[in-house]
């Protein structure tokens, strides 16, 4: 009797509610169409107002002019230098900020005493608008790379730090108890339960941190640089070239989105166990 019931229930394991492939791809097409609707309309409006001369070209150049400007930079090779240095600054700054945030965040998350020591101070620093550091950093480090990278690191630090701390503090005590019953050492509890459990929170912090990193690189390059996408913005302003400004803005958007997408890709791979059905479906 007992055995039979157990066998019967085996089929539960194979039940799957995923819709058929065709349905799924259909839905995907509609989703993409929906998300493209607004950009296409905006682009059409842009073409319309510039082609009909409703807005003069020294204020808003046509999309084609913007593309030509970007193309020109790409062809003479200067684009890659500007793009490269900006990406380099964001990555190095974000890396330093993230490493510091993870180290400090882990210490504060694990040790109550460290929380008492560090957290009030960090919370106070958090309320300083990060751009307020700009003059100080320039004074200390000049307008070279160190001041720019520091500024980006400061910007990235806070979201990552806050998420690491809350990720660790919010690990389900019930899961930790499973490890305790199994006789795990303190180190094993941290490595095998607390760290993996706080990983989703870390990725959330990393993504918003990198977003801020892109924001801060603009500020850093506006404050004085001889290369970089932000520098192109300054050139565009000084030489009244709106096509250069808009071109740089678009490039910022593209690389910013690209890096976020890359992290999302890693995140989805690392966190494929996550239950997203509530949001996605």
């Amino acid at each position: 009797m007992a055995k039979k019931m157990v066998e019967l229930s085996q089929s539960i394991a194979y039940e799957d509610e995923t819709p058929t492939k065709k349905k799924k791809s259909n839905r995907k097409v509609t989703q993409i169409a929906l998300s493209l609707l607004l950009p296409v309309l905006l682009l059409a409006l842009w073409i319309f107002v510039t082609a009909t001369g409703r807005v003069s070209s020294y204020q808003l150049p046509s999309p084609l002019a913007v593309i030509e400007t970007i193309q020109g930079l790409a062809v003479d090779g200067t684009l890659w230098g500007h793009l490269g240095i900006t990406v380099y600054r964001v990555f190095v700054g974000s890396f330093i900020g993230t490493v510091l945030a993870v180290v400090l965040g882990s210490i504060v998350g694990f040790y109550r005493k460290a929380e008492r020591i560090f957290d009030p101070m960090i919370q106070a620093f958090k309320s300083i608008p990060s751009l307020a550091w700009v003059p100080l950093f320039i004074l200390w480090m000049g307008i070279g790379e160190p001041s720019k990278i520091s500024l980006i690191a400061v910007g990235v630090f806070f979201p990552v730090y806050l998420n690491v701390v809350s990720g660790i503090l919010n690990v389900d005590r019930k899961l930790i108890e499973v490890g305790k019953v199994a006789g795990f050492s303190h180190y094993e509890l941290v490595r095998r339960i607390i760290l993996p459990a706080s990983l989703p929170s870390f990725f959330t912090g990393l993504r918003s941190g990198l977003g801020l990193g892109w924001m801060f690189v603009v500020a850093a390059e506006l404050m004085g640089a001889s290369k970089g996408l932000g520098y192109l913005l300054v050139i565009g302003q000084n030489s009244s070239a709106p096509d250069l400004i808009i071109g740089s803005i678009i490039l910022f958007a593209i690389v910013g989105k690209l890096t976020d997408w890359l992290i999302k890709l890693v995140e989805d791979r690392v966190l494929k166990w996550r239950d997203n059905s509530v949001i996605g479906g």
């Binding site: 019930k174 899961l175 108890e177 499973v178 490890g179 019953v181 199994a182 795990f184 095998r192 339960i193 993996p196 459990a197 990983l199 966190l271 166990w273 996550r274 239950d275």
Partner: peptide, 24 residues
């Protein structure tokens, strides 16, 4: 010597079923 089955399953969501069983 003690093993515990709790009221909630308390499985580790980042592990597969097999890894959960061998976890401890």
């Amino acid at each position: 010597e003690v093993g515990v089955v709790f009221q909630e399953a308390r499985l580790f969501p980042w592990l597969t079923v097999l890894e959960n069983v061998t976890f401890t």
